[in-house]
């Protein structure tokens, strides 16, 4: 009896192992070729050996990226955009969320509803209008113009996200501070913000990562060669006209690796925060 049971358990484990290994293969498959493409000699997909790394390892694509292409400038621009977007998003969204969470004022409900409805609309749908607005305020072909678009486009969602979190912070906390004579701003910055740190961290991460790989708005806003971002630069390696798969993967890998490491470290925080606003309801 127990022999049969043992056999079934063994069989079960084997099947699960085979299944997991099969999925692992599928998951890893393109990633292996990404790394292989970045480090193999030859520029195009066609010259890439079907056995990963079979043609030896070279760093020529990195030499090419850093000497011939303005990779460093793309990286710097993107970094500036990402950092500014992140900082401005935190400032704007946390203040807005605090007001929505703690104050009663006329048309509040309508405003929240409007934010929610606006949030589903991908902001590039109105790109012609955004282009004209930037043209009028002199924001075309500037990094700050791009930052404004990113911050504004995500304000509706982010305000909701942070507001939902702040709603769970007991009001007694800030009311006590108010009774002690703290101003609204003090209450906000010394009481609420520290407690809301998890969601602020999440917001900082998400708004920092998003601009790295956005493609549409840099293409719309940035014109001059010295203002291009990583996504544009990398995408141009693999257009219809030319296929420099190796240079593309080499450049992409430099961005993707920090992302992957970061995600693996913070996976638990990210998922909790991400599902938090929806699941808790």
């Amino acid at each position: 009896m127990s022999k049969i049971k043992n056999f079934y358990r063994y069989l079960n484990t084997t099947i699960v192992m085979i299944f997991l290994c099969a999925i692992t293969f599928l998951v890893i498959y393109p990633l292996v070729y990404t790394v292989s493409g970045a480090l193999s000699p030859g520029r195009t997909m066609a010259t890439l050996n079907i056995v990963p790394f079979a043609n030896g390892i070279t760093f020529e694509h990195y030499t090419y990226l850093f000497t011939t292409t303005p990779y460093w400038s793309w990286f710097r621009n993107t970094f500036v955009i990402a950092i500014s977007t992140s900082a401005m998003t935190i400032l704007v969204a946390s203040m807005g969320a605090y007001v929505f969470s703690r104050f009663r004022f006329p048309v509040k409900k309508q405003m929240l509803m409007a934010l929610l409805v606006l949030q589903i609309f991908p902001s590039f749908v109105g790109m012609v209008a955004i282009y004209v607005i930037l043209l009028r305020i002199g924001g075309l072909d500037t990094l700050w113009g791009l930052v404004l678009i990113y911050v504004a486009g995500n304000v509706p969602y982010n305000v909701w996200l942070v507001k939902s979190y702040m709603d769970t912070i007991p009001r007694a906390l800030d009311e006590a501070a108010r009774i002690d004579g703290a101003s609204h701003f003090r209450t906000f910055s010394t009481i609420i913000l520290p407690v809301a740190k998890p969601i602020i961290t999440f917001l900082a991460i998400v708004s920092f990562t998003a601009p790295w790989m956005d493609f549409i708005f840099p293409k719309l806003v940035l014109r001059s060669a010295d203002k291009q971002t990583l996504a544009i630069g990398l995408f141009n390696f693999v257009t219809d006209r030319k296929n420099e798969f190796s240079n593309f993967t080499a450049g992409a890998l430099l961005v993707a690796i920090p992302f992957v490491i970061f995600f693996i470290i913070t996976q638990n925080i990210l998922v909790t925060s991400m599902s938090g606003s929806a699941v808790k309801e």
């Binding site: 704007v92 007001v99 209008a129 607005i133 404004l148």
Partner: peptide, 17 residues
């Protein structure tokens, strides 16, 4: 507190819409 959020949303989300 609301002015930046509302301002940005109005000019970069609502107006385009």
């Amino acid at each position: 507190g609301l002015a930046p959020s509302i301002g940005l949303v109005v000019f970069f989300v609502l107006v385009p819409l």
